Computed example of a mutant assay.
Amino acid sequence: MATDHPRFFDTRTEQGVLRLSIAASLGMALAAMVFGLLANSSLIIFDGIYGLIDVVMTWLSLLVARLIAQSTQTDMLQSRLNQRFSMGFWHLEPIVLGVSGTLMIGAALYALVNAVDALTSGGRLIALGPAITFAVISIVAESALAVFTLRANRRIGSDFIALDAKNWIVAASMSACYLVAFIGGALVRDTSLAGIAPYIDPGILAVVCLFVMVAPMATVRQALAGILLVAPPELRAHVDEVARGVVARHGFLEYRSYVAQVGRGEQIELFFVVRADDPPRALAEWDVLRDEIGEALGEESPDRWLTIVFTTDLEWAV
């Protein structure tokens, strides 16, 4: 019997991909904790902590994505939640992205301090068998998930999935570092270089932490721009170009534009100053002009908040 309900792990939707990523992240994080304790490796334990943070933040991303999707549905517009958040939920997206990136940087900074402490205290001996086994499993699983999320996002185009894919790439890169380090430790065992073995785990952890601290910075910067309502230059230029054309064609005095990119949402406000002696027009004519401007700005989207105002008083446009 056919059903219209989407599958829980529907890889064609943003929420389905994020759910799958949450399940995979949780499994990898728990495995890292177990293998980290078996191997006495702070490097692998950090990988588990990193994974648990990723699980929490991906779950929050999923929640926000669901709220945004529901808020743009006509049958949800009168819901109690939407009445309390009448301006939508787009503002939550950069907040979650910013918090996620900041937490990743904070966790890496804390682990870096511990790694430096271990390096200056004689290092740490680890059990190489469980460590190498975990590194191999991690590389295979995390690389597969990175490829999967990147391919899925070519069709979906989600900032949340893009950040998640970046996290899987980072995780796979970290696991590759683990494998190289652990194999190197096994090769130098019982040789004249055996003295460096205790420093391999904290040494690679320090390098990985530096890498993890750098990776989310672009996302945090982008999220901060959304939170502060910084106008994207490309969007501002496009809106101004359309507005200037409208002013020239219809003989308006001037215009004012206000734009912002808040997560996936575009917020555009246009105020056109009309001559006071301009011949009166029916409301239907102004609506037609609004439709014309909206089409010129681009394809209509549920993620676009567009306000167009016509006034003879410049103070209403400032």
Rank of each mutant, 00 (worst) to 15 (best):
Leu150Trp: 11
Phe46Asn: 08
Val113Phe: 13
Trp286Ala: 13
Glu266Thr: 12
Tyr258Val: 12
Arg84Trp: 12
Leu145Phe: 14
Arg12Gly: 13
Ile68Lys: 12
Tyr110Asn: 06
Met213Cys: 05
Ala23Gly: 03
Ala131Cys: 07
Phe160His: 08
Ala218Trp: 05
Ala118Val: 07
Ala32Asp: 03
Asp278His: 12
Ala197Ile: 06
Ile308Leu: 08
Ile139Gly: 03
Val34Ile: 12
Thr307Gly: 09
Gln15Trp: 06
Ala146Glu: 06
Ile169Cys: 13
Ser257Asn: 10
Val214Pro: 01
Met213Ala: 14
Gln73Ser: 12
Leu37Arg: 05
Ala176Asn: 02
Glu295Ile: 08
Leu163Val: 11
Leu210Gln: 05
Glu315Gly: 11
Ser175Tyr: 01
Leu228Lys: 01
Asn82Ala: 11
Glu234Leu: 08
Phe252Arg: 01
Ile126Gly: 05
Asn167Ile: 09
Ser71Tyr: 00
Asp287Gly: 03
Arg80Cys: 00
Ser175Glu: 02
Arg264Pro: 13
Val17Ile: 14
Ala248Leu: 09
Val17Pro: 04
Val116Glu: 00
Glu266Gln: 14
Ala65Gln: 10
Ala197Leu: 03
Phe8Lys: 08
Leu37Val: 12
Arg19Ser: 04
Val136His: 03
Leu289Glu: 08
Leu97Tyr: 01
Glu93Ala: 10
Leu81Glu: 10
Val96Asn: 01
Met57Tyr: 02
Met28Lys: 04
Val56Tyr: 07
Ser21Phe: 04
Asn40Asp: 05
Leu128Phe: 10
Gly101Trp: 02
Met104Asn: 08
Ala296Met: 10
Leu119Ala: 03
Pro302Trp: 09
Val208Glu: 00
Asp47Leu: 04
Ala162Ile: 00
Ala276Ile: 08
Gly157Asn: 13
Tyr258Ala: 14
Pro6Phe: 11
Val239Arg: 02
Pro202Thr: 12
Asp201Ala: 12
Glu241Met: 11
Thr312Leu: 04
Ser121Glu: 09
Arg281Trp: 15
Asn153Val: 08
Ser42Cys: 07
Ile308Ser: 04
Ser42Asp: 13
Val242Asn: 00
Gln222Val: 15
Leu103Asp: 01
Ala65Val: 10
Asn82Arg: 15
Tyr110Leu: 15
Ile45Lys: 06
Phe9Thr: 08
Gly51Gln: 00
Tyr50Lys: 02
Ala296His: 06
Asp313Leu: 06
Phe134Asn: 04
Asp75Gln: 09
Asp75Trp: 11
Ala23Gln: 02
Phe160Ile: 05
Ala141Thr: 14
Phe271Gly: 11
Ser41His: 01
Gln70Glu: 14
Gly123Phe: 00
Met33Asp: 05
Ala317Pro: 05
Gly98Thr: 06
Thr219Phe: 10
Ile53Val: 14
Asp313Gly: 01
Pro94Gly: 04
Ser71Asn: 10
Val113Asp: 09
Ala260Asp: 00
Ala197His: 03
Leu62Gln: 03
Ala218Leu: 08
Gly123Trp: 04
Phe35Ile: 05
Met33Lys: 11
Lys166His: 05
Ala115Val: 07
Ile161Leu: 08
Leu67Glu: 13
Arg304Phe: 07
Phe35Tyr: 08
Leu60Arg: 04
Met87Gln: 13
Ser173Trp: 14
Ala32Gln: 10
Ala111Asn: 00
Gly184Asn: 14
Asp10Leu: 02
Asp117Leu: 11
Ala127Pro: 02
Cys177Trp: 06
Leu103Trp: 04
Gln83Ala: 14
Asp313Gln: 07
Thr312Asn: 06
Glu142Arg: 13
Gln267Met: 12
Phe8Gly: 03
Arg256Gly: 11
